[in-house]
């Protein structure tokens, strides 16, 4: 039995916990150089229709640890640039007998279409502004390592919430596992209607950060300034940058996270990004292990 990992929103808390446990277990075993399941007969296609060196390398590393072969599908070299539809690309890979797909695409919901035509496991590596489930899992493992649990924590997700797939996946995951989720950002970068989203919404950083145990910063795209959603990076930094001064209202043990790539000096300052509160490097490392967990889980867990 194989399954897809298209998003966090449609997962049950049990399934999320299973993925987290698998990820933590793989981390322990890889670090101890113990054996992990071997999926050596499996080939997974890495379809990155949008540039992402970080996530792609992380998935390739995860596949390598599981003994899988990953087949790279670079868009510039592919037939997508010759006008092939996504459906035909997916059908091609299906009949080339790839066993599974990891896909990143600029269009929200495109992994749903891929899964419909592929017929085997599809893992969403980020779709438009919709979901980025493996990032949320990496962040969950990181939080559990630092805080012992997710339940009962107060977590602030700060920045361009409106356009962020990381914000959505993290929000759903953290709420499903019992955290209090707060989305913080300027009104132009928050969704206009929030009824179908988890958590509470704040436009004042101090209010949003009060007594929080975890802060997740989001990347501010330059595009947002061009679109007139915020005056300048300086204006944004002045109002929403995570730094020691702004963190005074947070819980003294508060940790700070960022999914990367970081705009140092904009959404987070240097000392905080590199300081003892920062869990950023753990997020990156845990990304590999939760992606192992996702591959293993989607391929039915049969080694």
């Amino acid at each position: 039995m194989s399954s897809n990992l298209l998003g966090i929103r449609n997962l049950e808390p049990d399934q999320i916990n299973e993925l987290i446990s698998l990820g933590r277990d793989f981390k322990k075993r890889v670090r101890a150089e113990e054996s992990v399941p071997n999926l050596s007969r499996k080939v997974v296609g890495m379809l990155f229709f949008e540039n992402s060196t970080r996530t792609r390398v992380s998935f390739e590393q995860a596949a390598y640890y599981l003994g899988m072969r990953s087949s790279n599908f670079a868009t510039s070299a592919s037939s997508m640039s010759k006008g092939e539809t996504l459906k035909d690309t997916i059908l091609t890979l299906r009949h080339e007998r790839l066993d599974g797909l990891v896909m990143r695409h600029k269009s929200s919901g495109s992994p749903v279409l891929a899964a419909r035509h592929f017929g085997g496991p599809v893992i969403n590596a980020g779709d438009g502004q919709h979901e980025h489930p493996t990032q949320a899992l990496a962040d969950a493992v990181t939080i559990i390592e630092r805080k012992g649990t997710i339940e009962g924590l107060k977590v602030a997700i700060v920045g361009d919430v409106k356009h962020s797939r990381v914000a959505r996946s993290n929000g759903w995951l953290l709420e499903k596992l019992g955290a209090e989720v707060r989305f913080v950002g300027p009104r132009t970068l928050l969704p206009t209607q929030t009824a179908n989203l988890p958590g509470a919404f704040y436009d004042e950083l101090d209010e949003g950060l009060e007594n929080v145990d975890v802060v997740i910063c989001l990347r501010l795209q330059k595009e947002r300034m061009e679109q007139g959603m915020i005056g300048s990076t300086g204006e944004y930094a002045h109002m929403y940058q995570i730094n020691a001064e702004r963190l005074q209202v947070a819980d003294p043990g508060c940790i700070v996270m960022h999914p990367g790539p970081i705009n140092r000096g904009v959404e987070i300052d240097d000392p905080t990004a590199d300081g003892e509160r920062s869990a950023i490097t753990s997020q990156i490392e845990n990304g590999v292990f939760v992606r192992m967990a996702s591959l293993y889980w989607c391929f039915g867990g049969n080694a």
């Binding site: 502004q129 206009t192 209607q193 009824a195 989203l197």
Partner: peptide, 15 residues
């Protein structure tokens, strides 16, 4: 439609 569903699906809304 720009609303609660577009916010959930991460699709750009038409207000």
């Amino acid at each position: 439609n720009d609303g609660a569903v577009s916010a959930m699906l991460g699709l750009k809304g038409t207000p």
